[in-house]
Simulated scan of single mutants.
Amino acid sequence: MIENKPSGAYTIDDLPFLMLGVAAHRTMDLIATILGPEGIAEREKAAARRAPGELVDSTDVALSETAREIAEMTLATASTHPTTLRILAESRFLSVRVKIAENPHTPPETLTELARTPRGIIANTAAANPGVPAGELETILLLSDSEAARLGALRNPTVTRHLIEVAAADPSPYVRSCAAHRTTVVTTLERLAADSDAFVRAGAARNLLVPHLSPVQVDALAGDPERGPRAALASNPAAPARALERLAADKDTWVRSAVAKSDALTPAAAALLAGDPDERVRTDLAGNRGCPPALLTALARRRQPAAVREAAAGNLACPADVLYRLAADRSPYVREQADRTLYIHHLGGGLHD
């Protein structure tokens, strides 16, 4: 029998036992049961003597590949044992190697090796792991031929301002777009907001420093010939009011919907969207807590489609008298949503006429 111990205490020597449990029960519930209270540490000591290339291929029990993959995935996700994680980094299963690349306890040297692998998803995941050495992040962004690894390095929470500026000149528009989203240097943002690639301009439009751009540049993003930058700007919670009000009248439904869902929604933009010809836009607006109460009242009227009324009924900012009316709506879905919202208000004591 396998001893019960904390999930992090399991090592590569526990793999045959985990495989046996998976094969016998075919459910992950057993894995959750196995990963229980602390047990003994003999297997950890045994694992420390193993070479990284020694995956446990010699087991006395003939088990399915599926059972083996699930067992390895369990170890790759839960283990904190360095030797175990180094061994599993050489697993034949891609899913396991990705989990090792994600694991915050994976040794730095193992993460470095994974970040240099030609397999894009592994390189990307490993490069984004905070455990990657700072020197390796610099090597990736300066010298790596792998676009996936460079993108992963830019997602890494430890990446420096200097390296983001390096990435802003990357030949890949995807890398430049990520740098445009993350940069904290206004002059760099200005340059990337005028990039020839729409994907890069969209990255710049998502940056929270957009209000620091000149009105001319913000207008250029709001009037971009491609939908991507306009939609990105509409989704930006820091987007200037003037830009949102322009985008609320955009020709593209996707862009108008992004404005309707915006945390920065202005009363003027909401007023434009309340009369939008597209039901999806009005539905998004009705669900936005920043929508003015008078407009929510209008969106909850019987002449509106049920989807719009239901969104209003689920909005905690909806006036009390409107919610009570929606609780008697002809649509059972609207009534149910209104009842839930009223219940939440009563629980919090926040319902006022």
Rank of each mutant, 00 (worst) to 15 (best):
E310R: 14
V56L: 14
L143D: 14
A180S: 10
R155V: 01
N124H: 14
A41W: 09
A193T: 06
A274Q: 07
L163T: 02
A269R: 00
A243H: 01
A128I: 01
S7I: 09
V132H: 02
L18F: 06
Q304M: 15
P211A: 12
I40K: 12
E65R: 12
R43W: 09
L15H: 04
V166Y: 02
L265M: 06
V185K: 09
A306Y: 00
T188R: 03
R227T: 13
T183S: 11
A32L: 12
A126F: 08
F17M: 13
E54S: 12
P305Q: 09
A231C: 06
L233K: 00
A153K: 03
A243D: 02
H352A: 13
T341I: 04
G275T: 08
R280Q: 11
V218K: 00
M73E: 15
V281M: 05
G348S: 11
K99N: 13
A248D: 08
G152A: 08
A271G: 11
R206F: 13
E38G: 12
E109Y: 05
S91P: 05
G36T: 13
A317M: 03
C318V: 03
T160D: 07
A205L: 05
Y324V: 09
E138T: 15
A47H: 02
R230T: 00
T83I: 04
T183M: 08
A48E: 15
A238C: 06
A260F: 03
V98L: 07
P6G: 08
D197M: 09
G39V: 07
R182W: 05
V255C: 06
E90G: 15
N207C: 09
M73V: 02
A243R: 01
L351G: 14
H212Y: 11
R68L: 07
L209T: 03
L142E: 13
G53C: 00
R86L: 03
G21E: 04
T59E: 10
D14F: 08
E42I: 11
R227G: 00
P52S: 10
T253W: 08
D321P: 00
P305Y: 09
L208Y: 07
A286R: 00
L137M: 13
V96Q: 04
T27R: 12
Y343D: 15
T80C: 07
A202Q: 10
L342H: 08
P107V: 02
T59V: 13
L141T: 04
T112D: 10
A204V: 06
V175M: 06
A41V: 10
A270I: 03
I34T: 10
T117G: 04
A193K: 04
I87G: 05
P107A: 07
L141A: 06
A241S: 15
R50Q: 12
T283A: 14
A32Y: 11
R116I: 00
A239P: 00
S262I: 01
D170C: 07
S79Y: 08
P133R: 14
H352K: 13
S146H: 07
T187L: 09
A271H: 08
T253A: 14
H212R: 15
R302T: 15
I100S: 01
A47M: 06
N129W: 02
N236D: 05
A202K: 02
A194K: 11
A320W: 10
A338D: 07
N103T: 06
V308A: 05
A23H: 11
D13M: 14
V61M: 12
S262F: 02
A179S: 07
G348L: 14
T74G: 15
